[in-house]
């Protein structure tokens, strides 16, 4: 998920949403074939996660492709009875939520400032942010590991939150900036004529108008954090404190994988995403444009 690109979706979407969809449109045969193909491509993996998670371990050993089997919730029962699940779920929630809050606290003022002032330094700052948010995560994990080691932040949740927030703040700034730019300057000017100071203007004019952008950014930051496991696996030294994604990554790279258990864990990991997704799908698809 690249930030700049998402902001690109939102910019274009802002410009085009007003137009109704091509009304005379009728899908041709080629389009229908393609749609079916895409359905298969994206439906089958999801279906297989679900199917495998309700099989018993024995059934997976022989052939993994069978469709006819006796469904069992065995894998889920084992997952919920196991020691790891609840702490991992709590850990995931804590990490994702606090990272989201921290990122927004830093990124919102930054993005607003970068949207309102111009000049050469802003251009340089923006270019730097783009470079930063494109950096391979594997390149930052090495120095961070050493810095955290000397700061005593290894194996602590707050250290991980800090690392995740540092990773995602450039992304969030680049993503938020167009939303703040889209707030008409005249709105702020008229408020300032009415005697509102900069703080008041920001909180009661700019922020409410740009709230969709903030919501989109918050959702994406949460989603990425939820799936992040490289930092988690390296900075948290004891597997007992792993979040869900790291637990999953650890199990899938082990030998002799218990597939139903793994798929059950995948489903459990994905359910919060599904809930969040259902709530914010329109935002993700269309980007901005509130009911103004």
């Amino acid at each position: 998920m690249s930030a700049v690109a998402v902001s690109r979706v939102t910019e274009t979407a802002t410009a085009t949403r007003r137009r109704p969809r091509n009304p005379r449109g009728r899908s041709g045969p080629v389009a229908i074939i393609l749609q079916v193909l895409l359905f298969v491509m994206y439906g089958i993996p999801i279906l297989w996660i679900l199917l495998t998670s309700i099989k018993s371990s024995d059934e997976v050993i022989g052939t993994q492709a069978s469709i006819i089997f006796t469904p069992t919730l065995d894998a889920y029962v084992r997952a919920f009875e196991g020691q790891d699940l609840w702490p991992a779920l709590a850990q995931s929630l804590i990490i994702s939520t606090s990272t989201m809050v921290l990122v927004l606290a830093v990124a919102i003022p930054c993005a607003y400032a970068l949207a309102r002032v111009g000049g050469r330094w802003v251009t340089i700052a923006l270019a730097l942010l783009i470079v930063l948010q494109m950096m391979p995560q594997t390149a930052t994990v090495i120095p961070l590991f050493q810095i955290f080691g000397s700061w005593g932040l290894l194996d602590s949740t707050s250290g991980l939150v800090l690392a995740d927030a540092a990773l995602l703040t450039p992304f969030a700034i680049v993503l938020l900036r167009p939303f703040f730019r889209a707030v008409p300057i005249a709105l702020e000017e008229s408020a300032s004529i009415d005697g509102a100071g900069i703080v008041r203007r920001f909180f009661s004019i700019v922020l409410p108008v740009a709230r969709n952008g903030v919501a989109t950014t918050a959702t994406l930051v949460f989603l990425i954090c939820w799936g992040e496991f490289l930092y988690a696996i390296n900075f948290l030294l004891s597997p007992g404190t792993y979040p869900l994604s790291a637990l999953l990554a650890q199990q899938v790279s082990a030998f002799g994988i218990d597939w139903p258990a793994l798929m059950a864990l995948s489903v459990i990991t994905s359910i919060p995403i599904l809930i969040l997704f259902a709530a914010t799908y329109r935002l993700l698809r269309e980007g901005s444009r509130s009911a103004r």
């Binding site: 998920m1 749609q35 895409l38 359905f39 994206y42 439906g43 089958i44 993996p45 999801i46 297989w48 996660i49 495998t52 993994q64 989603l223 939820w226 799936g227 496991f229 994604s245 999953l248 990554a249 899938v252 597939w259 793994l262 798929m263 995948s266 990991t269 994905s270 995403i273 599904l274 997704f277 799908y281 993700l284 698809r285």
Partner: peptide, 24 residues
């Protein structure tokens, strides 16, 4: 619906997608 499905897959954690492909 298809677009929704695709975007949902994109929003899933990469670990989940990776696991299912390793399995398939």
């Amino acid at each position: 619906i298809l677009l929704g499905l695709m975007v949902f897959v994109w929003a899933l954690p990469p670990v989940v997608n990776g696991s299912v492909w390793k399995f398939l």
